[in-house]
Structure formats: C-alpha cells, structure tokens
C-alpha cells in the first residue's frame, strides 16, 4: 500500500495538493514540509497553500476523526505534520498580510491539573491553522487576563475535568465582563463534566464536547467574525 516512490516535485499542482491531503492524513511531517516548499517555489501565495493544501487536508482528517475512522494518536500525527507546514508559512503569512485563521489562548482553570483533553484541543486547533498559546494547568484569572493583554487572541479556551473546578470558568468570564472586554473575545469551554447548559450558565459562547467540535466551533466563530468585519 505504501508508495515511497512518489517524487513530489514531479507532480502537477493539483496532484501535489491531492498528495499533500493524503500525506497529512498519513501524518507525514517531512513530506508536508517539502510539499509546502514546492508550492511556494511555484509561486503559490502562502495563504493559498495554507487553505487549499493544509487546512483542507486537516478538514478531511477532522471529519474521519469525528466518524471514528481515525484515532487520536493518528490525528496528533497529522496535526504535527500540519504544524510543520504552518511553521514555514507563518512568517510569510504575516509578511503578506494574509487573513489569519485566528489566535487562541487556552488553559485548564485554577485548581485543576488535568490537561490531556486541553492539549488535544490545542493540537487540533494548531492543526487547523490557529495560533495557540497554551497556558498549561491551574490558571488563576490573572493569568488569563495577562495572556489576553499580551497576545490579543480571538478565542479564549477554558478546560476542567473536576466538578469542583469547573465553576471557576464563571470567575474568569465575570472578570472579563467587569473589565468590559467580554464581548471582544469568543469564549469556548470544555471538559468531561461540562454540558451545554453549563456553558450557557457561566456565560461562555459555546461548550465544545470534544476536540473536533472545538475546531469546528472555533472556525465557525471566526467566519462570523470576519463577516461582521468585512
């Protein structure tokens, strides 16, 4: 089944993009780097490489993850390959003023040290082309506020595994409200004990039940945001 004989530079643009979708699916970091370089050398705009080759490839990965065909470790591998492509594109995107997918600050809330789910979301978001600033675990409201100020993200993501720590999300959101900045940001919350009602009750924009939904939701909010701005 494996075909290591493929010479990426011999492929037409369409074939190469198709091959990159397959390579992303298969989690091939080196091949994605090479494909990204080739498209850039052929004069593709960095934003076109990002959307048509990388983001579209990760969309397929996300779909099959959602449908139970791909497994978590495979998706992480794909996300890793995507990140490698992004690493090449990011400075070029900035230089060409291309539209950004978006930026996210993500962290587990105060009192909670669980981060597997949060890490998964972070990696999937990066895989989808977002800039992700990961604050790690056990974050007090001050940490979130400082990160918002420093990074000016589009999205704030909060995670908790414990019923005893999840109410802290409301503390963060209420603080944002007090400072009058709540509506400047999309707030996404997640974690095993949460549900939609809880998300609404604490004043988040959305509850995301898993990493795939987090990415879809984030993309959806970014689309709306751009529409408003345009």
């Amino acid at each position: 089944m494996s075909d290591d004989e493929i010479i990426l530079s011999d492929l037409s643009d369409d074939e190469l993009v198709q091959q990159m979708h397959d390579d992303l699916y298969d989690g091939l970091k080196d091949e994605i780097e090479e494909g990204t370089q080739i498209l850039l050398e052929r004069g593709w705009a960095p934003y076109k490489v990002l959307t048509e080759a990388l983001v579209e490839g990760m969309r397929i990965v996300g779909e099959d993850f959602r449908d139970g065909i791909l497994f978590v470790p495979e998706v992480l591998l794909s996300a890793n390959a995507m990140k490698a492509g992004m690493f090449i594109l990011r400075p070029l995107l900035a230089a060409t003023g291309a539209p950004k997918q978006g930026k996210m600050v993500i962290g587990t809330v105060k009192g909670d040290i669980h981060d597997i789910g949060k890490n998964l979301v972070g990696m999937m978001m990066e895989g989808a082309g977002f800039d992700v600033i990961d604050l790690g675990i056990n974050n007090a409201v001050e940490k979130y506020m400082a990160a918002i100020e420093e990074h000016q993200p589009d999205i704030i993501g909060m995670s908790a595994l414990l019923t005893t720590t999840m109410p802290y999300m409301k503390v963060v959101i209420d603080t944002m409200k007090e400072k009058g900045i709540r509506d400047d940001y999309v707030v996404l919350v997640g974690g095993a004990p949460l549900n939609e009602e809880f998300g609404k009750a604490v004043g988040a924009d959305a509850y995301c039940r898993d990493a795939a939904v987090a990415v879809e939701t984030a993309k959806d909010f970014m689309k709306r945001k751009h529409n408003v701005r345009n």
Binding site: M1, S2, D3, D4, I6, H21, D22, D23, Y25, D26, G27, L28, K29, E31, I60, D64, I69, L70, L76, L77, N80
Partner: peptide, 23 residues
C-alpha cells in the same frame, strides 16, 4: 512531541486506503 527514534512513518495512501484497510 515526537521522540528522535520515531520509526519512519510511511505513506499508506491517505484517506481512501485507510478507510478500506479499516473495513
């Protein structure tokens, strides 16, 4: 994230092949 000794990950044919293989 990956350790340096990660075995070479090989092409397996993308979505079409993986879906068929899983079946």
């Amino acid at each position: 994230m990956m350790d340096p000794d990660t075995p070479a990950i090989r092409r397996r044919g993308g979505r079409a092949s993986v879906v068929a293989a899983r079946e």
